[in-house]
């Protein structure tokens, strides 16, 4: 958080989270290996490694992609979101095992460079059925690598937030590539209907989750006003705002969070400087607005993070008239001190 570079700022919750990740990964691998070795004795270690790591990576990807929309739909899922990054890096490492072993197994020790072989051993690029599915997996792996490599906040600060977010939104491209990789690869030869059915169900669940969360947000965006310098906009009655919490007001598709605390009102921009979390869904803790995603904090009267942190968000003028709350939609420069409105 703006301090000197530390690999991971561990705390108890992250440790518990990571322990569960490790537990579930081991459980999956042990179960997969045991069931295969018992029911399909002629397997080899290479095939077992490739399949167990590949299927585990897909499962992890589905879980990771669900966390975002789940947290929008219900705040009880926020603890899953807090350390999602570790899940993502874990998923990449397991996908790397799958990709690495596959490249070794199918392309190495031959007459050409293995990466060249990945792209040229099957040249049916113009066919859907015969498409070289390994290329899809390879590109997805590159995307996941880029994301894992830049997953540390160091990169978030040094690439611009826009670049970083654009890069990390490629996870959806990776998901599409991976589903295609499996359907144009393994599922063209494995005859069980249950495997594609599971991935199909996963697809349906992810689509429903994202659409539900999306509809929820679009409904909020509907109540939007145009930003202009001088017009005060009516937000709500004072009593509608809970103590130490905020009301989110939407202007020009941007969101303003108006917090009530210690008989005062202050308004800041809704988007947290860290990862874009919804500050208006946060809470005042120890006098600071606290983001519900990773706990980043800002002082309500000026939108600045308490020292030694240096993040700043934009602030807005807010006033109270007849127990009604009004906000001036024009954003002030980030970190501008604004006198809070006093509740009599």
């Amino acid at each position: 958080m703006g301090l000197n570079y530390q690999l991971v700022l561990w705390n108890k919750n992250k440790k518990v989270y990571d322990r569960y990740i490790l537990l579930f990964v081991l459980l999956y691998l042990v179960l997969f290996w045991a069931i295969t070795l018992i029911t399909n004795r002629n397997t080899t270690l290479e095939t077992l490694t490739i399949r167990s790591s590949g299927t585990l990576a897909i499962l992890l990807l589905h879980i990771i992609l669900s966390i975002g929309p789940l947290a929008r739909i219900n705040t009880k899922f926020l603890p899953l979101l807090y350390n999602r990054r570790h899940l993502g890096v874990t998923m990449f490492l397991i996908a790397l095992i799958h990709g690495g072993f596959s490249i070794f197994q199918f392309h190495m020790l031959g007459d050409v460079n293995p990466i060249y072989s990945v792209f040229t051993s099957n040249l049916d690029y113009s066919s859907l059925h015969d498409f070289p599915f390994q290329v899809l997996g390879f590109i997805a792996l590159l995307i996941l690598f880029a994301m894992a490599a830049t997953s540390h906040d160091f990169w978030l600060a040094n690439l611009s937030a826009k670049t970083w977010k654009a890069l990390h939104m490629l996870v959806y491209v990776a998901y599409a590539l991976i589903v295609s990789h499996v359907f144009l690869g393994a599922f063209q030869q494995e005859t069980s209907p249950y495997m594609p059915a599971l991935i199909g169900i996963g697809f349906v669940i992810l689509v429903i989750l994202h659409i539900t969360a999306g509809i929820k947000e679009v409904r909020k965006d509907r109540q939007t006003y145009k930003a202009s310098d001088t017009d005060w906009k009516y937000v709500c009655e004072i009593d509608e705002i809970e103590e130490d919490r905020a009301k989110i007001f939407i202007v020009d598709n941007e969101r303003i969070a108006i917090f009530k605390y210690e008989n005062k009102l202050s308004a800041i921009h809704n988007v947290c400087k860290h990862q874009g979390g919804p500050l208006g869904e946060g809470k005042i803790v120890d006098g600071c607005i606290t983001c519900p995603w990773h706990g980043y904090q800002y002082l309500p009267q000026n939108g600045q993070s308490p020292p030694p942190f240096t993040e700043k968000v934009a602030t807005y003028h807010v006033k109270i008239e007849d127990n009604k709350v009004y906000v001036l939609p024009k954003a002030l420069e980030e970190g501008t001190e604004v006198t809070p409105a006093i509740i009599k």
Partner: peptide, 16 residues
């Protein structure tokens, strides 16, 4: 979910 996934993807593989 983890157990179900592991079972389906291991148990129903084609026989080697």
């Amino acid at each position: 979910v983890v157990i179900l996934f592991a079972i389906v993807f291991s148990l129903f593989q084609n026989k080697f």
